[in-house]
Design a binder for these strands. Structure first.
Lengths: 334, 334
DNA sequence: AATAGCTGTGGGATCGTTCCCATACCACGA
DNA sequence: TCGTGGTATGGGAACGATCCCACAGCTATT
């Protein structure tokens, strides 16, 4: 059974006002009244109705998280999964519950869903279209973007500093002595992939590497299968072209491609080095373990929630654009 | 801004009752009234307050999902991530939103949280203690368990048929000609790991393999690191003992152990075959791709939501225990 | 002409809380 | 003795929807 505060009050011999004061913990109540109410609460295992509370408080203590992504996997995506884990942990710490939704149609509907449920704030993850942001903007709902792309100066967003990461990768590989570079890059309409490639390219340029020593293959998707397919397709060009290193704009592409290399008995890193980007869990587990650029997803998730909490409390937010600098994890594949 | 139905009604020149009828779509309304209300709704982008709706309907259209797990990762766990993806998709299809929570303290608090928010139903995932189930049971809240263990005949639960899977693995490996078997098994207090090992052991027994040809090493955790550590620790015993195959009770242990074998130049599968359990995404991506026992996590997630929906609608549920049979995926490691 | 049965409408109660406000008691100092 | 201020209490409005019910108009049947 489920009880309401009126029943609790009458069983404790007080008015609902007094019961409310005891249970919510603000307002006066005599020690005797308090004790009686708490006893009834304990005995009946009374759970206050958060829906009714939300109604009057005009706050649900729920935040909405929407992950926009065309293809599966979404939650089980190695990077977004980590991000969601961090968000859940941080949200819990601040007393929020999380309404999670995935959206593969990139529509406005998922945002409307959250709006109707009156979440206190909204975190939008990954590739979302401009119209979704514009839609959400119309309501005075605190929201922010993680790992998406926008040129809108109003939108608060958290992104990894992909350009810097790409440049760091270039410098690191150049420092190892590599001179001819092969790149498999994910979809360029996706901000991260674009900037990682751009950073890598410019990094090489600054190091004096001529454009002719850089081969770039674009991939329509950024998963294992495409990485493997493209490596297989360009295998001769890679080996025959005296390229000594493969850089990819995420780990999935790198692992897919590296598998093809290993299958064809190319020794990694002796004959060909491989470097990815993201530091997904399996990068370290692979044989050989993948050298990569680490994005601190955990901190991004925590910061996203902390920032959203500031927005919800109408506190000042220091900067709209929050970049997370990336670091190189040297492992066995280079 | 956010409006309420009274404002919509007065702008449309009707009573809130009429507006409600138009918006919710049940009850009479003249074509003219309907048109005027819908126009105002459209123009003001009115979003009905789901909190208020939930209040009167005594239904939130939210379901709660709690994942119990002591260690990180939780959502980014390769198996649970897939499960959650499936649950989200199925829930969306039935008009539910999902409140997701992770619980590392295995306490009753996370369930209380869901109870307070008045979710329509609850899905409990993984290792949960008996007291949590007993606690939830006290409320007339529809709930079910996925991938947990219980001896309580009342509890509706969905599990993979781990014993059958273990036996299938034994039969398959025996059929390949293997005669001496090495096993790394996860924590035996976890139902899955226990049954997988039991099934494997009994399967071998039925095939006439003497117990002396089966070596079992128990792992305190079921992750990559432990798989690698234990393989390294028992490397001499494994190689020197003429074992030709390693079976583990999940893929993480297998991949961790396989990495050590590859590092020590053991050729897989020629010198030693490796077989896991679960079919996580990276099992297929590894070089060599891991042969494993596939658990249909996607179907489990969908079925869990469908079943919960039946419970919520007080429809009859056919059986308390729902087992999902597993199938062997033969890849490169055997 | 009376009655029944639709369509259409709006008022008010309701859901379970919180919070404002009126009231009451008591102690204390002017 | 009278205010004043702190403690304690309960009644009622409010939050924003739905839904029951009363009532009104219209058409069709007897």
């Amino acid at each position: 059974m489920t009880y309401n505060i009126k029943e609790i009050a009458s069983l404790a011999g007080v008015s609902k006002s007094t019961a409310s004061r005891v249970i919510s913990g603000n307002g006066y109540a005599s020690p005797e009244a308090r004790a009686r109410v708490l006893e009834v609460v304990e005995q009946l295992q009374y759970k206050p109705n958060a829906v009714a509370r939300a109604m009057v408080a005009k706050r649900t203590n729920n935040i909405g998280v929407i992950v926009f992504r065309e293809q599966q996997p979404i939650v089980s995506h190695p990077l977004y999964g980590k991000l969601i884990d961090a968000i859940l942990e941080a949200a819990e710490g601040l007393g929020y519950s999380v309404l999670l939704k995935t959206d593969r149609e990139m529509s406005v509907r998922s945002a409307d869903h959250m709006l109707e449920r009156r979440v206190d704030g909204l975190i939008l993850i990954s590739r979302l279209r401009k119209n979704v942001v514009d839609h959400v903007k119309k309501y005075n709902l605190p929201y922010l973007m993680v790992n998406g792309s926008t040129d809108d100066p109003d939108v608060i967003h958290l992104v990894s500093n992909d350009e810097e990461g790409g440049a760091k990768a270039a410098a690191y590989l150049h420092g190892l002595g590599h001179r001819r570079f092969f790149v498999i890059a994910g979809p360029q309409e996706h901000r991260s992939h674009h900037l990682r490639l751009e950073g890598f390219r410019q990094g090489l340029q600054r190091l004096g590497v001529p454009a002719s020593d850089l081969a770039i293959v674009l991939s329509p998707e950024s998963n294992l299968e495409q990485g493997a397919r493209l490596m297989a397709e360009h295998f001769e060009a890679f080996i025959g072209g005296d390229y000594t290193v493969l850089f990819t704009t995420n780990d999935m592409l790198a692992l897919g491609a590296m598998k093809v290399l290993l299958q064809r008995s190319v020794r990694v890193p002796e004959q060909a080095a491989v470097m990815g980007f993201d530091d997904i869990d399996f990068a370290a587990a692979y044989a050989p373990a993948l050298t990569t650029v680490k994005v601190d997803t955990n901190r991004m998730g925590h910061d996203a929630v902390a920032l959203l909490d500031r927005l919800i409390h109408q506190e000042e937010v220091l900067s709209k654009k929050n970049e997370f600098s990336s670091e190189i994890l040297i492992r066995e594949s280079t």
